[in-house]
Simulated assay, not measured.
Amino acid sequence: MRSFEGVVTTGIYCVPPCPGRPRAENVVTFTSAAGAEAAGFRACHRCRPYRGDRKPASASELVCRAIDLIAAGALDAGNAAELAARLAVSERHLRRMFHEQVGATPDQLARSRRAHFARRLLDDTDLSVTDIAFAAGFGSLRQFNRVMVAIFRAAPVELRKRRRRADRLVADGGLALRVPVAEGTDIGRRLAQLARTAIGGVESATPTCYRRTIVVDGDPGVIEISSATADAVRLVVHLPRIEGLIHLVARVQRLLAGQPWDPFEDDIRGIVSDHGVLDDLVRAYGVPIGGLRKFGLAYLFPTPTTLATANSSGLDKVGAQAIRASSGTV
């Protein structure tokens, strides 16, 4: 993984190779963008390091787990002490590990992630500044403005004016986003894999585009993922609301890294290997969603409660007891 380079004479940090070439004696190295920002550097306008999403180089398993939890929103309502408890370490030990490997505290990393996500939305979308603030997980517009000025040295309205003409993404319906993926991810291979295992009605896929139904805060929605560049995908989301969009994007990144979209759904896939039977299961017990025919979608995947309470005769074909065991009721 590449590191980040801060230039002490300008106060700017970059992702090498950057078009700007500072003298080697003026360069200091950081393992993360958050570490560079915590040291007082701001993102370069040329290489735009905020458009990537890299974990610190050589991070330990503990720190990687902590970063994944932060990406999932562990510090939105909680604090560093609660995060440390989830990892079965002391807060002091976690902070020390972050200082050594990230160069920033867990809270500073969370702040940096939100700011970088918001900056990408300012570049790529026409969302209002207020909508972007809440989509990126900020608690208020005042907090959003304060953090963006601290990290990028400019208010959101000024940053929006600096976006490049080619950045703006437009979708025929839905909100289009450019989502960076983990270094080394083979996007084409992962999309082809998702196409091979797609469940009818819940997922619709070709080797180059994957769609599925999702639930966000109890409301149904749809995501569309297609390849964009070697290190990013084009994501189009169809949602009734976009508050906390940053966490949905993190979930998409985990899916592209090889993790299942939903653990319960993955358990059922493990029990029922016949795709035709899975399709029947969805048609019988999935939640119907109207208006999605153009996507080739029609259902949300059945919930654990629905399958746990379903009539046994109706589940004989797919292994009633095994499914109920996975649902946690047997």
Rank of each mutant, 00 (worst) to 15 (best):
L278W: 12
P49F: 10
T309V: 12
R293T: 14
V147K: 02
R269P: 03
M97Y: 02
G78N: 00
A38E: 13
E61Y: 02
F98P: 01
P220W: 05
Y13N: 12
L83D: 03
C14K: 01
H45T: 13
G200V: 14
D76P: 03
A192I: 07
R234D: 08
R95G: 04
A59M: 00
A57L: 08
H116Q: 13
A43V: 04
I242N: 14
E91W: 03
G52Y: 15
L177D: 03
T213H: 07
R42C: 10
L292T: 13
A320P: 07
T305P: 04
P17I: 02
E82W: 00
A34H: 00
L122F: 01
V102I: 01
G103Q: 03
V277F: 02
L141S: 12
M1H: 10
P49I: 13
D76M: 05
G78A: 08
G35D: 11
A39K: 08
L307G: 11
D279R: 15
V233M: 05
V216G: 11
L175V: 08
F134W: 06
T31F: 09
I289N: 06
W261N: 14
T229V: 08
R2N: 08
G20A: 13
G184P: 12
C14R: 06
A77H: 07
S273M: 11
G174T: 05
D126M: 02
I289Y: 01
D123F: 07
A110L: 00
A77F: 05
R48E: 13
Y299S: 10
P17T: 06
S90I: 01
A135H: 01
R42M: 10
R120P: 01
H247I: 09
A133C: 12
E25F: 09
L122K: 02
F98S: 01
A198E: 08
G20H: 14
R283G: 02
L83F: 00
R165Q: 07
E82R: 04
E37S: 15
P56Q: 02
R96Q: 09
M1Y: 05
G73V: 03
L297M: 11
G188K: 07
R119A: 13
A36F: 09
V216F: 08
L87D: 00
L94C: 03
E183G: 08
R164N: 02
N26P: 00
A33K: 12
T213V: 10
H99N: 11
L87M: 02
I70A: 07
A176Q: 04
E100A: 05
A166M: 07
G258P: 11
R163V: 04
R163Y: 04
I214Q: 14
G244P: 12
D167H: 03
P304V: 06
R111N: 08
A136G: 03
H99F: 11
A66D: 01
L235I: 05
D219E: 15
R48S: 12
R254T: 12
E203Q: 14
P49R: 14
K294P: 05
S140K: 00
T309G: 06
